[in-house]
């Protein structure tokens, strides 16, 4: 029983976890609150599923629609956005087709569709995948099944590697790309669209009403901690390639 009180189980997505930020934060949390944090890092879809089964104490994800549905269906009580970063469009360095000079991300996607350029999609129902699919939906273009539209079933970094190999375009979160920048000789960030490509990371404590055994106490403490100055400092100093990746949301 005591062990349970002292353990916090976080369900998160690979894109957040792989940056390494979460590990850093949790280490400090463990020290300060003298507890143990277990992080389960999976695709967004799986994270929600695990949450719906009460397999964790809180969700730390970045998929607004899914989060709202989660709360609506009564699995979580509230949604607290804590950080944000951006998605970026990466592609071949030579940028033959002048994608980087597109007006916005929608324009870029349109060009890619029209010119039938190799595009790498995650296809794993992750937050990034959802964002990409939302963009296609908005411009009413459906690339699924097209020869140039490659659907990997892998995580962000593997998909980036595939883009690197195949000289393709891909939507990625900026943190994953920058943290592995040295690897990529063929592709680089071609387009940034802060307005349309914002990516919010929120914490949703799992409903105690639904699952009475969840560690709600520790979850609330975690949210407090994430909003504290200590974590603010960690985030401000979390840089890749000289650039700050995450921004705190007040």
């Amino acid at each position: 029983m005591l062990k349970e009180i002292l353990t916090l189980i976080i369900l998160t997505t690979t894109s957040l976890y792989d940056t390494g930020l979460l590990d850093k934060i949790c280490k400090e949390f463990e020290k300060e609150y003298k507890c143990k944090v277990k992080i389960i890092s999976v695709g967004s879809g799986m994270a929600f599923k695990l949450g719906k089964n009460g397999e964790g104490d809180l969700l730390f994800v970045h998929e607004v629609e899914g989060e709202e549905r989660f709360i609506k269906e009564g699995y979580g009580e509230k949604r607290i956005p804590v950080f944000k970063n951006e998605f970026v469009l990466c592609g071949p360095k030579d940028d033959k087709y002048k994608i980087s000079s597109s007006l916005d991300i929608f324009d870029a996607f349109k060009k890619i569709y029209e010119k039938k350029l190799t595009f790498i999609s995650r296809d794993d129902k992750s937050g990034t995948d959802k964002k990409e699919k939302d963009i296609w939906e908005k411009i009413k273009l459906y690339p699924e099944g097209k020869k140039w539209y490659i659907q990997t079933g892998t995580g962000m970094i593997e998909s980036l590697r595939i883009a690197e190999e195949k000289n393709g375009y891909i939507l990625s979160d900026i943190s994953t790309f920058l943290s592995h920048k040295k690897e990529f000789k063929n592709i680089k960030i071609l387009l940034r669209d802060k307005k349309n490509l914002e990516n919010y990371y929120s914490i949703i404590p799992i409903s105690k009403k639904r699952f009475p055994y969840v560690n709600n106490q520790l979850a609330e403490k975690f949210i407090e901690f994430v909003k504290s100055k200590k974590v603010k400092d960690i985030v401000e100093n979390f840089k890749f390639d000289g650039e700050k990746i995450f921004e705190i949301i007040e």
Binding site: A47, F48, K49, G153
Partner: peptide
């Protein structure tokens, strides 16, 4: 086998 990995990761049990 790789599909099973993907579907499980997605949550499509």
């Amino acid at each position: 086998s790789t599909s099973i990995v993907l579907y499980t990761m997605r949550g499509e049990i």
